[in-house]
Amino acid sequence: MSGEQEGDPRWKRAVDMLAVIGPPLTMATALLVYFGWARTDAQAKAMGLDVSLFGYTVQDFVLRSIPSLFIPLVWLLIMAVLWLAVDRFLAGQLAGGRTTVIRRLAAVILIAGVACSAAMWLVVILQPERTVLFVPFIMAGGVLLAAWGLSLWRRSRDGAGRGIPALSRGSEKTLIFCLVTLLLFWGTSDYAQALGRGLAVSYEERSMLLPTAVVYSKDRLGITAPNVREQASGPEEHQVYQYTGLRLLVVSGGRIFLLNEGWTLRSGKVVVLHDDPGMRVEYGNPESK
């Protein structure tokens, strides 16, 4: 049975497809998780918090990364489709006997990829204290471009690629994959942190668009955030404390995160409350106030 499966072309195509799709899918999932974590971590630090307070799960990080990564991933897939189309076109030209032209084009692509990566690495060395967005992504593109140019050059040679040991080809692909993966993680980290800091700053402008929150508690909470008002009602032995002037940030990990009205990065405070039975929170539409 095993021999029949190994000789079945459909089985071989399925294995080849898994080999092609598996590593990129794994890398994409890891990037989604890391992007969500890096973005949330930078946003939390800018707001004076630690990301561990939110109690986010891996699924939460993935979901928080998708809206921000949707457009970049679409462009990445478009570029991948265009690259496959160009590669097939050049393969057809190579099969038609135009080896000299393809060989020269491959040399140009190889040199351009190496020059692009070297230039971006020079930017990083000259400005180590400054984060330049998209530099790691450009470096990864340069590495892939150089690898593609080298592959075209080998294919343009009459049978020259057949003499390369399989171990060398496998090691080469592994090293390229690892290098590109590290560059993508690096670029994702820089972009996610910049986006997270930008989201924290945006709360200064759109904090009034967040849902209103009114907190009722049997115990006095002692919230001292700006613009938060405390009011006690009911008999003295059964007083209920009401807190207004709050906006809902997020509910996660059994905690309620609230911002004071008019929140700013410099003077605002994030109120963190445990979601327990002795406390009730009413949320409302910000426009209804």
Rank of each mutant, 00 (worst) to 15 (best):
E172V: 04
W153D: 08
D41H: 13
T131M: 10
K269E: 12
L49Q: 15
E129A: 15
P67A: 09
R154H: 06
A232S: 12
R247K: 15
I71K: 14
K218V: 05
V215Q: 02
L259P: 09
L184H: 03
L265H: 05
L76Q: 09
G97F: 02
L31M: 13
P235H: 03
S252W: 00
L150H: 13
P277N: 11
E172G: 10
A38E: 03
K45E: 13
S68Y: 10
R157Y: 01
F177E: 05
R206Q: 10
S288N: 13
I256S: 01
W11C: 06
G7E: 10
A85E: 11
L110M: 14
A200K: 07
Y203P: 00
I256A: 06
G141E: 07
N260A: 06
Y283I: 04
D41A: 15
A166V: 12
W186Y: 06
P277G: 05
G198P: 06
L167N: 08
T181H: 00
A115E: 07
G262N: 10
V228I: 06
V114Y: 08
E172C: 02
Q231C: 00
A91D: 14
S2D: 04
P72V: 02
Q193M: 11
G149A: 10
C178V: 14
N285K: 09
A91K: 13
A112Y: 00
M79S: 14
